[in-house]
Design a protein around this nucleic acid. Sequence first.
DNA 1: ATCGCTTATGACAAGGTTGTCATATCCTTT
DNA 2: AAAGGATATGACAACCTTGTCATAAGCGAT
Lengths: 208, 208
Amino acid sequence: MPKQTFFNLPQNKRERIIAAAIDEFAEYHFLDASINRIIDHANISRGSFYQYFEDLEDLYQYIFQIVADKKQAYMDQHLMDQQTSNDIFQVLRKMYQLGLKFAEEHPAFAKIGNHLFKGDKQFKLRILGEWEEHSKQFFIGLLKKGQEEGTVRQDLDLEVASFLFYQLSLTLTDQYLMENDWFENINRYLEASNEMLNIFAQGIRAPK
Amino acid sequence: MPKQTFFNLPQNKRERIIAAAIDEFAEYHFLDASINRIIDHANISRGSFYQYFEDLEDLYQYIFQIVADKKQAYMDQHLMDQQTSNDIFQVLRKMYQLGLKFAEEHPAFAKIGNHLFKGDKQFKLRILGEWEEHSKQFFIGLLKKGQEEGTVRQDLDLEVASFLFYQLSLTLTDQYLMENDWFENINRYLEASNEMLNIFAQGIRAPK
DNA sequence: ATCGCTTATGACAAGGTTGTCATATCCTTT
DNA sequence: AAAGGATATGACAACCTTGTCATAAGCGAT
């Protein structure tokens, strides 16, 4: 957590620092980020930085919390507005869509997340803690529900399917943020996510 | 390409340097690798390094070529030994399997490739050139053949399916090399790759 | 053994990084 | 206005990085 001094700062200065940090962490993984670039960009002195934060990781955790909150709020908001259909295929479709749209609307935030997921495993664990495990369990729960309702094959390996859904949503966002890697534009990515879910749906659906 | 001096070296010294470089590039992406660590590990002086190589990228390209050749040979060898079935699902299954087994048998090599695929896009392009595009076209060709034979749905978006196959093989290897991320051991990964292909197969197969 | 080519060496410059600290400035309260 | 606490500053040490270069050592042929 940043020191009290940071929160005493005039709003505009605080925001300048936050903006500089977001830019830095969007471009570089935490382990490659530089305090020098941040203080240059934010126009504060080296000494000040250490008056506000313990070190770079202190700042990173603060920024990452902002990102995580933003994404959480985004998902909550948009998953609500349309009444949550009980169809698990609908839920998954919506999640993929929202993931991509969040990346489109908040590329810097998305890039920060992306660096974290792609980069050093130790660091990822330190920042995310149990989050990834929860996420995995969420997917498994969703699929289990599908099995109980009879819409998902009984013999499906839920762990594997959950791996598929989770990893592919990360890959999709990653590729999108990479810019013109596989697909041309956001719409093609949305199309692709849809088609992928069609494949999955047909692939895991119970036979009639 | 390394300078002539390097190739004039006594074999054992050359191999010491290659081994040190492989270790370094297996642990760190090229952009994070350090000449200092390599020369320490190889027990040569700083000056010697520059007598053998233009710079670190010169060495990297040399090492990467070794890795690429090794993998190519591995694939060729094992795709041959069992007569190549014409079934595209069989081919894909075998490719996933071999990818994982190569990573198991040659973890350092696999890690080097992995760093390349996960890391900086500019650098990846510089090293791989058109390779990724060829790879993509290979998958598309495979699927197109399936469509012509009537085993793959006509309305399948081949670009998306190809994305799926390509990215997932990378993800699978990546997760395996990360050690005990999703699945416990190599066998569980092989199982997972099989189950994933079952899902895909059912997902893209033409209706009877 | 001396000449000459090849190889080896580590000190060095120039640039980057982080964290500290003595000093200066600002601002509020008295 | 003066005192005192909070904030700002940039020089500095310590450590890393890369690439160069003058010098030294090895080694084969004459």
